[in-house]
Design a protein around this nucleic acid. Structure first.
Length: 546
RNA sequence: GGGCCCGUAGCUCAACUGGAUAGAGCAACGGACUUCUAAUCCGUAGGUUGGAGGUUCGAGUCCUCCCGGGCCCGCCA
């Protein structure tokens, strides 16, 4: 509908002011005004044209509106607020839109123009179970993926497995130490080892599988423990994600980068470009040439590569795979890391804007007014699994999208469990169930939805619903292009609210007005469909009964 | 000390990248069930958008400076 109005305005501008002014339409706003008096749609085009033509906005608006009011899709076109053009749609237009909603994939568009985008999210180290913060990133990435898919992008989903380096070694040592402990042998627990309960469980399990393990040389036993822990934890991570309804196209191994010599290769490439140097025994990348605060170490003086080194190789790999855009979803505590990775991308001949980073802010859990604490090191962190079991997957997914990704999220467990109106998940689901119930009941009474008399749907509430449904198309575009999946939950709450308002004011089924009833059934079926689609994109259930 | 993010109703957040009189939900108060699901709806109240300047037809949004809060600043990941 936005596209529609835009097109009509373009035509009018072309006719009245000439082809060379048409480009201004692209910069103009086209939106639904907050106030009903301002009609169904409004544009500020005349203000922009005024600047260019050095004429009064009001005059330009008046000329355009005269032209536009001739069109059958508009009931009236008015000038207000010094130059805003307000459009009021005709009943024919509502009928047309409603049919589109009911009968087509109206929410699918192609603003992405087939852009190949690699979405990387979660990417948790396989050194422990997923915590709630990972879950938030997972849902953000997952819903963004679905929205991009529906708006014409060509996204792919990837999980980067940090299965190399110190952390994994530390995991092995931690398990080893716990095994020693179980056998009452003296062995110091590593300083910054993983202290969570799950390490003890892994130790027990490994001892059962390999009773001889502690008789092996320590180094070999630790290696086995590392591999074992990594495998088990990755399995657990995959199970958790599956439970959460989050999937990936690729699981990309950091270790694989080393095994294929890609880290060596990318460093050689940087070397050839003269971007590496040695200092104090370490190897540094001149990231300062590309806007970073200081140069960064890629190989430590002890010969080990840094995490940064493999990350450079990883992003180079992404570039080589031909993605037009890479979007990484990271925890907000990594934000200081962005400049150096962007610098690395540039050092490799890429554009820093090729990489986009979405930062996920902290999730705090509240229960009974008390914060449920989490701290990975101490080992008493709140796992994603615990939360899913506590409140259910629907609530987890929906609640994670109740705030923009870069705002800290307070997750109210009591609220998520409450079957009351303040719980937004129920609010939206209830709207869906309510509609299904009416449609079922109509069938029993022999009433069928019909598009024969849709022009009878002329009340304020009905028009709001029709437009409201159609807006899903644009909300998805906003989700995808602005990378803001939380908009979808807000959209659904808003649509549900419109529905409830309609429901309380009008009766759908009225035996004495069969024509109006079947038109309303047609309408609410379209609303039901729209809510269902929205919930499907969120991967939240749309129950038929509650 | 340097850098990034944030500050909007009592609380939690919106505001379509500069548009019209800043909107919702909780919480508060007052109403609506012999009716298709009251897990709902309607109404009332609530604001100097942290503060001060600036840019322009127009600023919560952009610029500068203050005040307050969070995060990052390792040869950790």
């Amino acid at each position: 509908m936005k596209e529609f109005v835009k097109e009509k305005v373009s035509d009018a501008v072309r006719e009245l002011l000439g082809e060379d002014k048409v480009h201004v339409v692209e910069r103009a706003s086209f939106e639904k005004p907050k106030k009903k008096e301002f009609g169904d749609f409004a544009t500020n085009i005349s203000f922009l044209l005024a600047r260019e033509l050095k004429r009064k906005p009001f005059e330009i608006a008046r000329e355009l509106s005269q032209k536009l009011s001739e069109l059958p899709e508009f009931e009236k076109v008015e000038v207000a607020g010094g130059g805003f053009i307000n459009f009021t749609f005709s009943q024919d237009f509502y009928v047309k839109i409603l049919k589109e909603v009911a009968e087509t994939d109206f929410y699918v568009s192609d603003i992405g123009k087939g852009e190949k985008v690699l979405l990387e999210y979660v990417s948790a180290n396989p050194t422990g179970p997923l915590h709630v913060g990972h879950g938030r990133g997972a849902v953000v990435g997952d819903v963004l993926y679905r929205a991009m898919k529906l708006t014409g992008y060509a996204p792919e989903r990837e999980f980067y497995i940090n299965d190399a380096g110190r952390q994994i070694k530390l995991l092995g040592v931690s398990i080893y130490a716990r095994m020693k402990e179980l056998k009452k042998e003296n062995y110091p627990f590593p300083e910054d080892g993983y202290r969570g309960e799950y390490i003890k469980e892994l130790a027990e399990k490994l001892l059962k599988e390999r009773p001889d393990i502690l008789e092996l040389p320590e180094e070999e036993a630790v290696e086995i423990a590392s591999e074992f822990g990594k495998r088990e934890l990755l399995k657990e991570i995959k199970e958790d994600l599956k439970e959460l309804g989050v999937e990936f196209d690729n699981w990309f191994s950091e270790k694989g980068l080393y095994e294929r010599g890609e880290v060596e290769r990318v460093l050689k490439l940087l070397e050839e470009k003269g971007l590496l140097y040695e200092k104090e025994g370490a190897l540094w990348l001149k990231t300062t040439l590309f806007g970073d605060d200081k140069d960064r170490v890629v190989r430590r003086s002890n010969g080990e590569y840094t995490y940064f080194a493999s990350d450079i190789a990883y992003h180079y790999n992404k570039m080589e795979r031909g993605y037009e855009k890479a979007i990484d979803v990271w925890g907000a505590d990594h934000h200081g890391y962005i400049p150096r990775v962007k610098a690395a991308v540039q050092a490799l001949g890429g554009n820093p804007d090729w990489l986009e980073v979405i930062l996920i802010q902290l999730v705090k859990l509240f229960k009974g007014g008390q914060e449920v604490k989490m701290s990975k090191r101490a080992g008493n962190f709140v796992t994603l699994r615990w939360l899913m079991e506590e409140v259910g997957v629907d609530a987890v997914r929906f609640f994670f999208l109740l705030k923009r990704h870069d705002t800290p999220l307070d997750f109210d467990i009591d609220l998520a469990l409450s079957a009351k109106n303040e719980n937004p998940v129920y609010y939206v689901q209830y709207a869906h169930a309510r509609l299904c119930s009416i449609l079922d009941k109509a069938k029993e009474r022999g009433l069928e939805p019909s598009d024969d008399n849709l022009k009878l749907l002329s009340s304020e509430e009905e028009k709001e619903l029709i437009i409201g449904c159609y807006l899903l198309r644009y909300e998805l575009q906003a989700v995808a292009s602005r990378r803001e999946p939380h908009r979808l939950t807000y959209y659904l709450i808003d649509l549900a609210s419109k529905l409830h308002r309609f429901y309380n004011k009008h009766r759908v089924m009225d035996e004495s007005e069969k024509e109006l009833s079947s038109a309303r059934l047609y309408l609410i079926n379209a609303v039901r469909k729209t809510i269902k689609i929205g919930l499907d994109i969120l991967n939240v259930n749309a129950p038929r009964r509650m």
